[in-house]
């Protein structure tokens, strides 16, 4: 069981996207005017798409402390403020979405094994639907996905802190993303399967024995 927290700025439906189940216990942490969360009970911090990046900047020291304690963060948002250690998200509309394709660059944990990347690129034949902008990745971080123009779209960073960060260029993910589309949920299915692979990988990372340097 993973003990995860999800920061929530009250946007509609977020509570339905992260429902506790046999694998993950989710706790929503509501953002307010004096947001000062205690991340210490949790293994995993999830920052969903549409998060309050003003509030996150104001607690960037708490995020850094959490990660430096060896813990894990998934950020599926466009973090326009500088609160993600070592990495920057940049919005970009220089290219047309019709030209967007993704390519797997470095996937050391085989997260995309068995995943149809085509489904991340196209929804009902429309390309460029999943992510926006790109990531200026920290030196030494793994670029898992890049776009047509070799810009990072998904980054795994195990070097900027003592912990682990999985970052998308605002590409949304959640435990349950399928509730509000009327296309038979097809466009979200592969993203949902990938998220479950992330959870499996996170289980391994979180529960592996920690080595201590003496």
């Amino acid at each position: 069981m993973i003990n995860a927290c999800v920061v929530s700025n009250g946007i509609e439906g977020i509570e339905n996207m992260f429902r506790s189940n046999q694998r993950v216990s989710y706790t929503l942490l509501p953002i307010g005017p004096q947001f000062n969360p205690d991340f210490s009970p949790f293994d995993l911090l999830i920052v969903p798409n549409g998060t309050d990046n003003i509030a996150m900047f104001n607690i960037k020291h708490l995020v850094a402390e959490f990660l430096n304690a060896g813990k894990m963060m998934f950020c599926f948002d466009g973090w326009f403020t500088d609160w993600v250690p070592g990495n920057t998200w940049i919005m970009d509309n220089a290219h047309k979405t019709i030209d967007i394709r993704y390519r797997i660059v470095q996937d050391r944990y085989k997260l995309f094994e068995g995943i149809d990347l085509h489904q991340f690129i196209f929804s009902n034949g429309i390309s460029g639907w999943w992510a926006c902008g790109h990531i200026q990745a920290a030196p030494g971080a793994d670029i898992i996905l890049e776009d047509t123009w070799q810009q990072p779209i998904m980054v795994l960073d195990e070097v900027s802190t003592n912990g682990t960060m999985l970052l998308t260029a605002s590409g949304p993910m959640a435990d349950m993303l399928f509730g509000t589309n009327d296309d038979g949920q097809d466009s979200w299915q592969e993203v949902g399967r990938f998220y479950q692979k992330l959870i499996s990988w996170a289980e391994t990372k979180i529960h592996q024995p920690k080595t201590i340097d003496i």
Binding site: G50, T51, D52, I54, M56, G78, F80, M91, S170
Partner: peptide, 25 residues
């Protein structure tokens, strides 16, 4: 609400002198 798409709209060159962000709190 601190959301990136709200931010990118207000920061776009064509709107930034007309529209100003007011943090909900």
């Amino acid at each position: 609400n601190g959301v990136w798409s709200q931010y990118t709209f207000a920061k776009a060159e064509k709107y930034k002198d007309i529209v100003e962000l007011v943090y909900v709190y």
